[in-house]
Design a protein around this nucleic acid. Structure first.
Lengths: 222, 222
DNA sequence: TAAAAAATAACATATTTGTGGTATAGGAGC
DNA sequence: GCTCCTATACCACAAATATGTTATTTTTTA
């Protein structure tokens, strides 16, 4: 927090010009930070982290990999000392939990106010957690309105694959043909999926799947 | 373009702090503009447009109404001389065409580069059209991959309402009860919807509806 | 006001879904 | 070795869907 500490160098990894410009301004006006660097491509991130002494990385994960965060995970493993703030346009509950698992606990949305942004940065530097208000709500509505199903949400690999094929518009018969398995097996999978998720129709299933980020909507919605 | 013209006052209507901050910076550095004002609520927009001589409005429509753009339409009618640049996070093809119908032809995404932003503003002031590169692609893939249906995409009000009820997970019988119409009527609507959209299952219908922005995903995806 | 479009409704029928069971083989973990 | 989980598979049946065709009334629009 004071100038007597190690120099704080911040790396901003974001391809949105309008965002990086504002961030630069905020960090400059703060005065606590030694230098800031902006990278807009995924390759530059590793290079900068390797060659320079970076204290904090502010990153939009959509710059790297949108689903799975595997590259973000690798960064956290390669640079354990690095503090990370995730700054992104939108996150669903699945993604939020996944980031938590990786050890990223300072997450804000690009709709955040100035106070939230500085708070997230300060918390990250102190090793404290910080989440946007909107994300806190997401974290806490674990109970939720619907689904009285038992082990909600945890589908197996085959089950997830079938959800995606249903989303593509395939019928049970077509899914069986595509996967070279029996029609009856697909029926059983469907039953298990419905039971686990507490839904009883394709519509409800798809809404659940989209909400949870199981279906890649990128190709459907710009 | 020159200082001899009328003073150019720009109103920025956006609730994203990170965006308004950058815009302010860009406009300040440009030097051509007399004054800039930032509003973050929908009520302030009309007040500012009424009381001050605004040349250009840079607006994120999600500040007002996300679907239908009815408030944006009213603004265009009330202030015909006003130039408008729409700056938003995402748009689908339906929304893009709707904006076009209203007479808003300068549209860029918040992922735009500095050049695109200034170009959009300059074009708007000159009365010329400007669209982000990503949006141009959207405009031009009219042919598209699927759907060989006839009058694609244009559903009536009742049909759209039924699409939303299907998305809610209601069965045909339930929809009939909810709307106080015959089961057979709902069946007919479904048939017409499927024919118009070139789909043949609820899954395909929902994917189409989400892609087109007919279903409000806000409650499902933050 | 005449034509076009939308909303309403019905009948018939093949296909698909949703739901209740039961059952076996293979792998992971204790 | 034993148990839990997963993937596989089958039977049966009621409910719902998808598809075709036709037709009347109401609303919109040209």
């Amino acid at each position: 927090m004071t100038t007597s500490e190690n120099p704080v160098v911040i790396l901003i990894a974001d391809s949105q010009f309008l965002i990086t410009e504002s961030l630069k301004l905020i960090l400059q006006n703060d005065g606590r930070f030694e230098a800031n660097k902006i990278v807009t491509g995924k390759n530059e991130i590793i290079k900068a982290l390797t060659n320079e002494k970076i204290s904090l990385l502010i990153i939009d994960p959509s710059l790297t990999d949108l689903t799975g965060f595997s590259e973000l995970k690798e960064i956290k493993i390669s640079f354990p000392e690095l503090k990370v703030v995730v700054l992104t346009n939108s996150l669903n509950k699945n993604e939020l939990h996944e980031l938590n698992t990786i050890g990223i606990t300072n997450i804000i949305l690009k709709t955040a106010e100035r106070e939230e942004i500085t708070e997230a940065i300060n918390s990250a530097l102190k090793g404290k957690k910080y989440y946007s208000n909107e994300l806190m709500e997401l974290l806490f509505d674990v109970g939720e309105k619907k689904n009285q199903g038992e082990d909600n949400g945890h589908l197996t690999g085959s089950e997830l694959e079938i959800v995606r094929l249903i989303a593509e518009g395939l019928t049970t018969k077509e899914i069986a043909a595509r996967k070279f398995i029996s029609f009856h097996t697909v029926i059983t999978h469907r039953k298990n999926i419905f039971r686990k998720l507490g839904v009883s129709s394709v519509s409800e299933l798809l809404m659940y799947a989209i909400k949870s980020g199981w279906i890649n909507m990128i190709e459907y919605h710009i």
